[in-house]
Each structure stands twice: as structure tokens, then as C-alpha cells.
Design a protein around this nucleic acid. Structure first.
Length: 836
RNA sequence: GCCGGAGUGGCGGAAUUGGUAGACGCAAGGGACUUAAAAUCCCUCGGUCCGCAAGACCGUGCCGGUUCGAGUCCGGCCUCCGGCACCA
């Protein structure tokens, strides 16, 4: 055995051997249960960062543990390889995006390999590979044929800096998620996926995901934003062109008797008719122009000034028959509800502010119970709580929460409107005016219109020998050899769609492709997904809580409906890991607070890097990087190494490795404790990895085990030591440390004479009897305060405990002269004597 | 504003079902070994009182409650983080 722990030599050696032996190549053995362990695949930026090290270390612990537990484990890796950085690099360094991407992939693959992660590299996929995007395009066509993909002209989010449109989900506080530029609104014809058709199922099925963090489910719930209300028709006093009414959406139909005005979004189709020829046309047009020129962020900020203008027109309140003034205002959004809103200033704070500003009358229709009557003149804010209806005709006296239903009934039976569920979720805008993405497989033909590319012509290949203009404009639009084509339907001249797909489309189904990554007949082969899906454990950053995780759920549901897969939800269990911080903030190049994984691995080895990152914090919490902590982890591995080294020669005549159920009767106290700790550690580490995902406490348990082994070694002279038990303990130690620090454990397993790879070994069992202590420490409390500790035999009953405590000298002193009111006992734990 | 989550030593964190708060690690201080250093090993390490010890009291963001017993449960607040937000 070597003196020194030479991590470099050991890690290189085992990485090479694992590769040569195809150790992690999946063998689908029928008699074993399956386990699909998946970490979110990375964007190939070129270099691994610490966040990657964290996710992939977590995933690898689970994968290796499950393998040892006897599962067929699918643990694949691939690349989310389309996207804008490749184009930016192309412009900056004049390299084609494909070359840039493939060389980044090669580098990151190499880096992952130095981490010693147990991937089956034969299943690697890259979304930018034609064999992959061919099927992304095919799936697009399935959606298209089901009516779930459509093109429409809409006011869409435009990022001027990325020179492309964005989905709603990619706009954060009015800024582009990628580059933080202010997003503009542009009217453009764009491709959408009809995710809103699935809004209710996406919401309902969150209940089928007990293995997801509540936090993520709540975020999706908020994003879907379901609300129940009524669409009510307000007839116009005079018909205007095709319009004879305005439909408003409200969730507060109980306040409909309190309507004193009505507001249209400036984009509402009725607006033009109301404005043209209006005596106040000039002012109205100026107002509309002003609002439309406001940026999204200015217009939707909560504290934005509410502004409006009266149109001079009126409509009729369907329940009261009263005339209602029609206004235009900046605070009404056109793309939510009907783009028209009723104004109830007495019972809606926003309406209250608007009405106060423009001197619009108010009408109280809900009175708080048991309080002095609300008087409009005295109100300084809207009354939005529960109360009884007043000034509401036949509904007076009803509690407003009840009136919601009753009034909705009335509106429906009288044909004045209908109940309506609305969602905040919008359709998913998937077109991108970019080059480096999967081309949308559609051809435009003068004669036939929009024509889908036939399956046999897929993939629509992305040309790779491209030149970029500094403006960043997609080369697809300027290359006739790409966009000029024949119409697949009539053979006439066609023009190819030059938009590509949002990269989130590519990542919405990669977990299915891993099940049959090389299949060239199907996007996903059903028998394979039937076996492997769902993903048993999915691991990734919480930043994808809405975007990727909702899109992937949507895709899975669509494919389920198309009978392409048999599962409705893709991810059974989700673990969202926290960020890696340095100095309290996220590591980033611009802040200059990064630590390079490659350097850390070179300096301390992959096992150390992995062990530290798993030990430093529980996985879902943010982790503060600490160079000292890394050294601590490194020290620990040295300690393990030395421990085995001291026994190296002693084991020559000890044939056993693991002893399943040791004979306990004749053991000395020290031997007995050694056995107990070995078995306890196996139990605890197994639970921490398999059930709690608390890798930090698993590591601390292993550290305690090592400390105990050192204590045994120092305390018991060598000729007195029970070497078979020591060897058993060391074998257990190596096995349970193996998922965390794979290389050193493989080496130590060989040193112990374990033969075949440590990852071919079963996770050790533990013997219940061995866990039991002969003696336990029992605490004596007096009035809840710890006053004495007793060493007592295990398993004494309450009465005996009580007697033992009361006969103790110190306890007698403390309770002398007092009345013992009550004694509470918890076996093997505590005795609480209540005295007065 | 609404909805989540969190708050424990100098630091990262542990305490799994209401039962010994501070496991494990980092840092710090002291010591051993060494010509010296590195490495390693040993001891101390929440606060106050006290020369030390014994011991007592205080201590898990704040205030109150339930309980024999609360970091853990309940009510009210404060702070931080995350999500949503003029969504009618």
C-alpha cells in the first residue's frame, strides 16, 4: 500500500479503468427494478462552473447509491446546445456557432469526466445535432397537426439587444431574462404553442406531484393564475358599427350594482369606432398614442400613475339599467380577460384611486357588518372586505360572498353574460428570429399558404457554414439556399420559415429521448419510455421552476394525448438545489468572485471537490464556497487513507470483508461499540441518501465513524483488536463513502481485497441487534431542567427508571423538602420529576 | 399588497415524531512531536457569575400562549430571501 494519498494518480487510473470496462454503460437487467436519475443538462458555455459541480455531484451520489442498492439505473448526460451565446461568439470571434458549440461540448465532457461522474456516455444527446432536432421538428409538426401550434399576429415581447421575440416567461420585471435589456412590444406574426389549452390540467396535476417541493408547485400555480368570475355584457346606448355591447370580465360580480364607469384598454377593437368622428378626437388619439408608447414596465408597474380619458359614450348596466360612462385608461390590459373592466370605486382600491382623480361618482353597495354605515364622502379608501349588500335591489341583505354565486346565476339565466374561468398563463411564443436553433419546419406557398414540411423531408437542416453581420441578423433570412424551396404540396415556389424554435422546446422532451437516444425510427420509442419513465429523481436549479419545468410538463401531456408516451407527468421527484455563493453572492465573472472547478480538481482532486460541496450545506440551500472547507474535506480523505494504511499488513490472515450478523455475546465493550457504530453508520447514511437527500449529514456520519475507528485503534492495543470486525468496519466505511468519493473508495476497496469494482457491490445491510446499546445515558430533569445523567441498562421500563432516579443521591438532595407531584419517563431517554 | 420559505455559537451547519440545543466541519487559542517548518496528534472553544472547579442563571429573531418539557406546536410582530403583482 502506498504511503501517500496520491489523488491524481488514483483518479486518473480509475477514470481510465471505468471507461475501459464500460462500467457505467447501462445494462437493462430484467430482474432488477429501474431507476431513472436525471440532472438538468447544461448549456455548453465551454466550462463547468461550481453550480454544475454541485448538481452533478448530487446526481452521481444518488445514481451510484441506487446502483449499489440493486436498481437498473439510467443516468444520462447531454447538451442543451442551441442558443444565443453561440451566435454572439460567432460575431465576436468569427467562428461558426456549430464549431464553437461542439468544441465547448468536447471541453465540458472532458471536465465532467474528470469529476468521475457515472454517466452512460453512449446515451449522450445534443439538441443541436440533426439527429436530435429532426425529432424536435417532428414533434412541432405533431403539435401543428393537433392544432396546438399556430401562427398569429400579436403584440409580442421584443428584446432589442437579442434581436428576437421572447415568451412571457422570459420577461422578468419588464426586462429580458437573458440580457436585462428593456423589453419592447412589437406587433409581429409569430408561432405559438397553445399551452393555455392545458392550463387547467397543468394546475390540477400539481396535486399528483407529492415529490415536488411546495415552493415550485406554488410558483407554477401563481404563474397559471386561475380566477373564477363572470363575463357580463354592458349594452351600448347607441350601437357603434358592428358593436352593440361591451363585455367585461369581473371576479366581483357581487359589486355590479356599484358600477359607476367602465374602462376599455386602448387596444380594444371598439376604441377606434368610439374615437373617430368624436368631438374630442384629437385628445383621445393623443392619449391612446401616449399609452401605447409606454413601455411594458412603465405601464404595468403597480405604482404607475393611473391615467384615463372619458370617451363621451355610455353603456347600460345590465342589472340596474343605469347609464355608465365609458373611459379609456392605461391600467387596463388588453390581453387579459376581455380588455374591458367595470369600475366599482367604492369596493376596489384601484378604481377608487382612479375615480378620485377624475371625480367619478362612487356608490356603496357593500356595508361592513356591525359598523357605522359607509358614507362615500367619508371614505378614504375602498372597502374591499366582506359585508352585506345594499343598494342592490333584490340582493340587499345578502352576504357578498354568497351574492357572488346568486348574481352570477341571475346574469346567466337572463342571458346577460356567463361564468368564466380565466388564466394568467398566455400561449407560449416559440418563434425566435435567430439562427442557432431548430428551424420551424413550415413552408409558405403563394398558392397553398402555410404548408408543413413532410416527415420524410426532415430534418430541415440548419446550414453550418454561416457568416454573421455585426447587426446579428439571422443568416437564415439572407441565404436563398436556405429559404428558397419548393412547396411540398404543389411543387411551386415556396419560402421556408426562417424563424427557429425557442430552445426551451428542445429541452422539453430530452428526458424522453434519453430512453432511446439513437433510435432513427421514432422520436421516442414507446417500449423504452414505458420502461424508463417517469424520471424517478430530477435535479436542477430552482430558476427553472416555471420555465423549463412547466414546458416539459406541457409537452409530456401533449405526447400523452397523442399516445406517444404513457405518462402524464414527467418528473416523479424533484430536487431543486441552491446556488453556490462566494462572499454572499452568486459566483459570476462580472463580479470576479468565481472559483474554477478545474483548478480545484487539479489542486485537491475530484473526490475532495465533490465531498466538500455535498458536505457544506443541504442541497436545497444556497452554499457558501469556502477554500478552508475544501481543505477540511481533503484532510478527511487523507485521514481515511491513513486509517486503512495502518491496517494494511494486519489483514493478511483476515479473509472476511462484510460480516452480515456478527456474534455479539462474547465481545468486549470496545468491540461491541465498534460494531454498533459500523452498523448504525450504514443505516443512517442509507437513509440520508435514499430518503432525506441530506448528503451533508450523511458525510458527517461517515466522519463520526472514522473518528470512532481512530478512537478504537488508539484505545485498544493491536494484539487485543478484533481484526475481523475492524476489517468489516473498514469495508463498510469504504462502501458507504463510495457514492461521495468514488475514486479513493475504488482504490481502497481493491486494497481491502474486495476484488471486483466497489460499484458492483451491494449496499451493505445492517443488523438490528448490532444497533442496540447495552447501556444508555438517561437524563434526569427536575421541573424540566436537566440535573443529572445516569448510565443505565438499555430498555428499563418507566417504573424502574423512576425508582433509579429517585434513589440517586444528587436527585434526593435536589428534591429534599419538596412534594413530588408527578414523574414522567421516556424509556432510554429521560426522567422528568415535577416537584412543588 | 398577496403567496411561499428562512432566521440556531466567530462561520457553514446538526437536532428525523414535542424529550440532553450546538453533532460534524471550519476558524481561533493552548500543548505534544520537530533543529525548524509542514504534516499529524492531544486539549479548550455560546454567554454571564467565578481565581479555577463544582454549580447556578441566561441562551435557537422579538412578544405572548399551550405543555411536566418548546429550536420544534399555537397567536401576534420584526427582519431577510424567493415568487407573483394595475390580472379586474
Amino acid at each position: 500500500m502506498q504511503e501517500r494519498y496520491d489523488y491524481q494518480q488514483i483518479e486518473t487510473k480509475w477514470q481510465k479503468q471505468w471507461a475501459e470496462r464500460d462500467m457505467f454503460k447501462l445494462k437493462q437487467e430484467g430482474d432488477k427494478p429501474k431507476y431513472y436519475c436525471l440532472e438538468m443538462f447544461p448549456y455548453p458555455s465551454g466550462n463547468l462552473h461550481m453550480g454544475h459541480v454541485r448538481v452533478y455531484s448530487i446526481g452521481d451520489v444518488i445514481a451510484r447509491f441506487k446502483t449499489m442498492e440493486g436498481f437498473n439505473v439510467l443516468h444520462p448526460m447531454g447538451w442543451d446546445a442551441f442558443g444565443l451565446p453561440a451566435e454572439n461568439a460567432a460575431i465576436k470571434h468569427n467562428v461558426p456557432p456549430a464549431d464553437w458549440t461542439w468544441s465547448n461540448i468536447a471541453n465540458m465532457r472532458r471536465q465532467l469526466q474528470t469529476m468521475g461522474i457515472s454517466y452512460d456516455w453512449d446515451r449522450e444527446v445534443a439538441t443541436c445535432h440533426p439527429d436530435y432536432y429532426k425529432w424536435t421538428q417532428w414533434l412541432f409538426l405533431q403539435l401543428y397537426k393537433s392544432g396546438l401550434a399556430y401562427k398569429k399576429k400579436a403584440h409580442v415581447n421584443w428584446c432589442p439587444s437579442c434581436a428576437t421575440v421572447l415568451a412571457n416567461e422570459q420577461v422578468v420585471d419588464g426586462l429580458c431574462e437573458r440580457c436585462d435589456s428593456q423589453v419592447e412590444k412589437k406587433a409581429l406574426a409569430q408561432w405559438f404553442f397553445r399551452i393555455t389549452d392545458y392550463a387547467q390540467r397543468l394546475l390540477d396535476d400539481l396535486n399528483k406531484l407529492p415529490g415536488w417541493p411546495d415552493k415550485v408547485k406554488t410558483m407554477q400555480e401563481n404563474w397559471i393564475g386561475r380566477s373564477e368570475g363572470v363575463e357580463a355584457d354592458f349594452p351600448l346606448v347607441e350601437q357603434k358599427g358592428d358593436f352593440d355591447k361591451i363585455t367585461v370580465y369581473t371576479t366581483r360580480q357581487d359589486t355590479i350594482f356599484g358600477v359607476t364607469y367602465l374602462v376599455l384598454a386602448p387596444e380594444h377593437p371598439l376604441v377606434e369606432t368610439l374615437v373617430s368622428g368624436n368631438p374630442n378626437e384629437g385628445n383621445l388619439r393623443n392619449f391612446i398614442k401616449k399609452v401605447l408608447s409606454q413601455s411594458e414596465i412603465d405601464r404595468t408597474a403597480t405604482d404607475a400613475e393611473k391615467e384615463g380619458i372619458f370617451t363621451g359614450h355610455y353603456c347600460i348596466n345590465p342589472l340596474t339599467g343605469e347609464k355608465v360612462a365609458i373611459w379609456l385608461a392605461n391600467y387596463v390590459l388588453f390581453d387579459y380577460g376581455t380588455g374591458a373592466v367595470m369600475g366599482v370605486p367604492a369596493h376596489d382600491q384601484r378604481d377608487f384611486e382612479f375615480a378620485t382623480k377624475y371625480n367619478i361618482p362612487m356608490k356603496v353597495v357593500i356595508q361592513p357588518e356591525g359598523v357605522d354605515n359607509l358614507v362615500v364622502e367619508e371614505m378614504d379608501r375602498a372597502f374591499e372586505e366582506e359585508g352585506q349588500l345594499v343598494n342592490s335591489g333584490e340582493f340587499d341583505g345578502l352576504v357578498n360572498t354568497k351574492a357572488l354565486n346568486v348574481i352570477a346565476d341571475k346574469i346567466e339565466t337572463e342571458g346577460k353574460g356567463k361564468r368564466k374561468v380565466n388564466y394568467r398563463l398566455r400561449d407560449w411564443l416559440i418563434s425566435r428570429q435567430r439562427y442557432w436553433g431548430a428551424p420551424i419546419p413550415i413552408v409558405y406557398c403563394e398558392k397553398c399558404g402555410e404548408v408543413p414540411v413532410p416527415d420524410e423531408q426532415l430534418p430541415v437542416m440548419l446550414p453550418t457554414d454561416v457568416k454573421f453581420s455585426p447587426s446579428g441578423e439571422s443568416p437564415l433570412t439572407t441565404r436563398p439556399d436556405f429559404h428558397e424551396c419548393t412547396c411540398p404540396q404543389c411543387g411551386g415556389q415556396g419560402r421556408r420559415e426562417t424563424d427557429t424554435m425557442d430552445t426551451f422546446v428542445c429541452s422539453s422532451w430530452y428526458f424522453l429521448r434519453y430512453c432511446s437516444p439513437k433510435d432513427n425510427e421514432f422520436a421516442v420509442r414507446k417500449e423504452d419510455t414505458d420502461y424508463w419513465m417517469n424520471v424517478d429523481q430530477y435535479i436542477g436549479g430552482v430558476e427553472h421552476a416555471i420555465l423549463h419545468l412547466m414546458y416539459a410538463r406541457f409537452f409530456t401531456k401533449v405526447l400523452y394525448d397523442l399516445k406517444i408516451v404513457s405518462v402524464e407527468e414527467p418528473f416523479e421527484n424533484l430536487l431543486t438545489q441552491g446556488m453556490v455563493l462566494m462572499g454572499g453572492s452568486k459566483m459570476s465573472k462580472s463580479k470576479g468572485n468565481t472559483v474554477s472547478p478545474e483548478e480545484i480538481i487539479a489542486k485537491y482532486g475530484a473526490d475532495t471537490a465533490r465531498l466538500f460541496i455535498l458536505f457544506a450545506a443541504p442541497p436545497e440551500r444556497d452554499l457558501e464556497w469556502s477554500d478552508r472547507g475544501v481543505e477540511g474535506a481533503h484532510r478527511f480523505l487523507h485521514r481515511v487513507w491513513r486509517l486503512l494504511q495502518t491496517y494494511g499488513d494486519q489483514f493478511a490472515n483476515v479473509p472476511n470483508l462484510i460480516i452480515d450478523s456478527p456474534e455479539l455475546q462474547d465481545l468486549s465493550g470496545d468491540d461491541r461499540e465498534l460494531v454498533r457504530i459500523s452498523h448504525y453508520s450504514v443505516k443512517k447514511v442509507g437513509e440520508d441518501i435514499g430518503q432525506r437527500f441530506n448528503f451533508n449529514t450523511a458525510v458527517s456520519t461517515i466522519m463520526e465513524m472514522v473518528n470512532a475507528l481512530y478512537q478504537y485503534k488508539d484505545k485498544v492495543s493491536l494484539d487485543q483488536q478484533n481484526l475481523p470486525l475492524v476489517k468489516d468496519a473498514l469495508a463498510r466505511l469504504v462502501l458507504i463513502l463510495a457514492p461521495f468519493a468514488p475514486h479513493i473508495c475504488e482504490e481502497l476497496w481493491q486494497e481491502l481485497g474486495g476484488g471486483d469494482s466497489v460499484y458492483k457491490q451491494a449496499w451493505p445491510g445492517f443488523d438490528e441487534k448490532s444497533l442496540v446499546r447495552d447501556e444508555v445515558e438517561v437524563v434526569v430533569q427536575i421541573n424540566g431542567k436537566v440535573r443529572e445523567k445516569l448510565q443505565l441498562p438499555n430498555g428499563l421500563d418507566g417504573e424502574t427508571l423512576k425508582a433509579k432516579a429517585l434513589e440517586n443521591n444528587r436527585v434526593q438532595e435536589l428534591i429534599a423538602g419538596k412534594n413530588v407531584v408527578k414523574v414522567i419517563t421516556v424509556p432510554n431517554k429521560l426522567i422528568n420529576i415535577v416537584v412543588k
